[in-house]
Amino acid sequence: MNKDQVKGKVEEVKGKVKEVAGKVLDDKGMEIEGKVQKNVGKARAGLGNLKEDVKDELEDD
């Protein structure tokens, strides 16, 4: 696991917590901010996954 995967998953979790807190507190701004943060985290984790796949392919050759 590389740092982009780890940081992406952490951001994803923090975003989900913020999204749920926004729903519970009826704070649309916080909910939207959480959704954005969650999706940014997913994208960063995806980038990390891509890096790992490329690294694995290069090692196999």
Rank of each mutant, 00 (worst) to 15 (best):
V13Y: 10
D27F: 07
L58M: 00
A43M: 01
E11P: 01
N49D: 13
D53Q: 15
R44N: 11
E59R: 12
E19A: 05
L50F: 13
E33F: 04
D61F: 09
K38V: 01
V20Y: 03
V36K: 11
G34I: 03
K9R: 11
G48T: 03
D26Y: 11
K18Y: 04
A21M: 06
E12L: 08
G46F: 11
V6S: 05
E57G: 06
L58E: 00
V20I: 03
A45D: 04
V54R: 09
K14Q: 13
M30P: 02
L50C: 12
A45W: 02
G22L: 10
D4I: 07
A43F: 06
E52W: 12
K38C: 03
G8P: 01
Q37M: 04
V17M: 04
E59C: 15
K18Q: 09
V20S: 03
L47A: 14
D60L: 11
K51R: 12
L47K: 14
K42Y: 10
M1T: 06
V40H: 01
R44D: 13
D60G: 08
G8R: 01
G48K: 04
M30Q: 13
L58F: 01
V13D: 11
E33W: 02
L25V: 13
D4Y: 12
K18D: 10
E12P: 03
Q37C: 03
D4H: 12
L50M: 14
G22Q: 08
A45K: 09
G8M: 02
I32F: 14
L58G: 00
K51I: 00
A45Y: 02
V10F: 09
K38T: 04
G34S: 10
K16C: 01
N2K: 03
V17S: 04
V13R: 15
D61M: 13
M1A: 05
K14N: 15
R44A: 08
G22A: 12
M1W: 07
I32R: 14
M1Y: 05
V54D: 00
L47S: 12
V40L: 06
K42S: 09
V6N: 08
R44W: 13
K42W: 08
G29S: 05
G29Q: 07
D56K: 15
E31F: 04
K18G: 01
V54M: 11
Q5E: 11
M1F: 10
V20A: 00
G46Y: 07
G8Y: 01
L25D: 12
D61T: 14
K55F: 15
K14V: 15
M30A: 07
V20F: 01
G22K: 06
